[in-house]
Nucleic acid binder design. Structure first.
Lengths: 351, 351
DNA sequence: GTTAGCACTCATCTCTCGTGAGTGCTAACT
DNA sequence: AGTTAGCACTCACGAGAGATGAGTGCTAAC
C-alpha cells in the first residue's frame, strides 16, 4: 500500500490534534476541522489503511485513532517542519546566555530550568564529561585547627571541595608550600595511574605531612572519580503531573521512581558517543526499553565542551509531545550554550 | 463533660487505628479489636461525647469517626508515649554518625536521607544559621587564564566557591599574595558593614588588582548573604504519593508546588528563635495556616551548631502521621548529630 | 450506667439502560 | 476506480436504580 499525499495529511491532522487534546480523533472531526475536501467516509477508508500500516491505533473498537510510536517516528523523521521561536522563547534564551554564567555548574542548572520552563516538560542536563579528566591545580585552605579544605580544579573547569581532617592543621604558609609541592607533582605524573607503592614513595617526600599528603591524593582521586561519574541536573520533574497520561498516581509514582535511578538516567541521557554534537536525537515511546517509560518520549542532543568532552541536554515528556517545539528549542539552546562555551574557550586560548 | 479514662482509651484506639488504616473507625470495630470490656453501644455513646468535645469528627453521617486536629493535639501533648527504636533504626542512625561527615553539607544531606528513609515521610533539613556569620578566610585559586575561583570559609565552617572572571588572571604566587592581604583585611574589619566609599579606599591599596579586589569583596559579601539566607535539603518528597490522602493528582501537585516555594519552607522549617534546641515541636494539620498543607503535620526540632547558631530538622507527612515513631526518631537523630557536632567543636577548642 | 434492639442514613457497588462518538461495510453515484 | 451516503454495529461513559453494609442515634429494658 502506498502512502500518498492525502494519507500523510490525515496522519498529520491526527498527530496535531492528539498532541493538543490527548483525545482519540475520529473521522468526522478531521472532516470538519481540516478542510481536506473529502468526506468523513473517505477519511475512514484512509484511516483504515493508516492503521494497517501501523501508523495509528485504535484504543478500543468504537473510539477514534491515536498515533502509534511508528506514526510519531514517521512524523519526526519526514513530516515535521521546524518551528520559529516565539518572542518569549527568544527572550528567555537571550537572558540565559547573558547571565554571567562563569561556572559550568550554574550554566547547566540555568539551562535545565529555562528549558523545562519553556517546554513544560522535564529537562535533564548532564555535566560535560570526557574520558580523561586531568587535575589542573589543587589548593589547600585552612578551615579550623583540625581540618583543611582541599580545592581541586580540573581541566574541564570543575571546582570541587574536599574537607580533610587532620590532627593539627598546618598554618597558611605551610599549606601554600604543600599545595605548591603537590601541584609540581601533578605536572609530572598522572596521579590516577599511580599504584599504592609509587604513591607511598611520593608521599614519603612530604616528610611530616605524609598523612595529609595521602589524604590530598585521596581527595584528588575522588574528584576525578566523581567527575568521571556522570552528574545530572533535572528540572521540572513535577511537570509530568500536568499531563492526563499521568493523572493516575501510580503512573506518576513510577515515573518519579524511574527518575531516581541513576542507571536509567545514564541509559537515557548519558552522552551517546555516536551522537554528533548538536544533532538532535529522538527516542519515541517504547523505543526506549523501559516499561515504566513506555509512554514517554525523549528529545536530546549532545553539546561539545572542550576536546572530546560532551554533555547532554534532554527533554522527557509524554509520547504525545510537541516535537516540533521541543526540537526547535533544543536546537536553539544547544547553539546558544555552544557559543557561550566557545567564547570562553577562545578567551582562554587568545588571552 | 469530663474526659474520663475510658474516653481516652477510645480516643487512643481511634487514633491508632486511623493512623494505620486511613479509614474512619466505627464503634463495632473498636469493640471487637480492643478489649475494653464494653459493648459497641456504650462506645457509641462515648464517641458521641468525644465528638461533642471536638476531638473526633465524622466525615459524613453514616461513616465512622476520624481524629480531629484537636484530637491529635491532645494525643501528642498528653497521651503519646515515646517508642523504642527498632534495631534497624538504631543501626541506620549509627551508620549515619559513623560516616566521615566532615563537611556540614554532607551531614545535612545524609541526615535528611536517613530520616526520610526511616519515616517514609518527607524530611527537610536547614543548614545551621545564626545572625552573625563571619568570614574566616579566603583563598584565590587559579582556574584558567581568564578566571580564578575565590574559596570562602566562614566561621560556621561553610565553604563556598565563587568563580571570578578577569582580563588576565595573576599567577599563583600573586594570588597567594592577594589572598594573604585580603585575609589581613578580614581580621581588621567587618567587610559587611563597610560602605562603598571605605571599600573603594581599601581596594585602592591593591593597586593593579583593584578590579579583582572589588570582585573578591563582592564574592565574600555574596557568601555571607547566601549563608544568611536559609538553605534547605529535602529528601523523600515523593514519599507523599504513597499516602491515600494524596491519591488525587491535584492534591499531590499542590503539595509539590507548595514545596517549591521558599517562603513556605521558611515559615514551616525556618529556625524558630523561641524553640530550645532539641525540643520537639509539632504542628498539626490546620495549625499551620497554609491551605495547601492543611492535611499535613510537621514535626521538627532545632539543633545547636556553635554559639547562637541553629539548624532545623523537620518531617512533614499526612496529619494521620505516626507521631510517636517520628518524635522518637527525630529525638534520637538530633541527639546524634548534636554529639557529632559537639565532638568536632571540642576538637577545635581542645586541639 | 450499660446494653440490646431497631430504625435510619449514606457511601459504595453493581447492574442496566440510554446516549453518542466512532467504525466498517455496502451500494450507489461520478 | 474513486468517492460518498447510509446504515448497522460497537463500546465507553454517565445517569439512575437497587442492593448492601457499615455506621449512627435513640429508646427501652436490664
Amino acid at each position: 500500500m502506498i502512502l500518498n499525499d492525502r494519507k500523510i495529511k490525515i496522519l498529520e491532522a491526527i498527530i496535531n490534534d492528539y498532541v493538543a487534546t490527548a483525545e482519540p480523533i475520529g473521522s468526522r472531526t478531521i472532516a470538519k476541522k481540516y478542510n481536506l475536501g473529502i468526506s468523513s467516509a473517505t477519511i475512514r477508508n484512509e484511516m483504515s489503511d493508516l492503521e494497517e500500516l501501523g501508523l495509528i491505533v485504535q484504543p478500543h473498537t468504537s473510539a477514534g485513532r491515536v498515533p502509534s510510536d511508528k506514526g510519531y517516528r514517521l512524523y519526526v523523521d519526514h513530516l515535521m517542519h521546524s518551528r520559529e521561536l516565539t518572542g518569549a522563547e527568544t527572550k528567555a534564551l537571550k537572558e540565559l546566555v547573558n547571565q554571567n554564567l562563569n561556572h559550568i555548574d550554574y550554566l547547566m542548572k540555568q539551562t535545565a530550568k529555562v528549558l523545562s520552563m519553556l517546554t513544560r516538560y522535564t529537562t535533564v542536563v548532564t555535566e560535560p564529561k570526557g574520558r580523561e579528566i586531568k587535575v589542573k591545580h589543587i589548593q589547600l585552605v585552612p578551615v579550623d585547627e583540625r581540618s583543611v579544605v582541599c580545592v581541586v580544579v580540573t581541566d574541564n573547569k570543575v571546582i570541587k571541595n574536599h574537607v580533610i581532617s587532620c590532627r593539627l592543621a598546618p598554618d597558611m604558609d605551610e599549606l601554600n608550600r604543600i599545595s605548591a609541592m603537590f601541584n609540581m607533582l601533578l605536572k609530572q605524573c598522572d596521579i590516577m595511574t599511580l599504584d599504592e607503592k609509587s604513591l607511598d614513595a611520593i608521599t614519603e617526600k612530604f616528610g611530616g605531612y605524609k598523612e595529609l599528603a595521602a589524604d590530598i591524593a585521596e581527595a584528588v582521586k575522588r574528584t576525578v572519580e566523581e567527575e568521571e561519574d556522570v552528574q545530572f541536573y533535572a528540572s521540572g520533574v513535577n511537570n509530568i503531573l500536568d499531563f492526563p497520561e499521568f493523572s493516575d498516581v501510580g503512573k506518576a509514582r513510577s515515573f518519579f521512581q524511574a527518575f531516581e535511578e541513576k542507571k536509567m538516567l545514564i541509559t537515557l541521557f548519558g552522552q551517546n558517543p555516536s551522537g554528533t554534537p548538536g544533532k538532535i536525537q529522538i527516542v519515541i515511546g517504547g523505543e526506549n526499553n523501559m516499561e515504566e517509560l513506555k509512554d514517554c518520549s525523549i528529545v536530546r542532543a549532545n553539546y561539545k565542551y572542550g576536546n572530546n568532552t560532551y554533555g547532554t541536554i534532554g527533554v522527557i515528556g509524554p509520547t504525545r509531545m510537541n516535537y516540533s517545539q521541543t526540537v526547535s528549542l533544543l536546537n536553539a539552546i544547544v547553539k546558544s550554550i555552544n557559543n557561550v562555551i566557545k567564547a570562553s574557550e577562545d578567551e582562554d586560548n587568545g588571552g
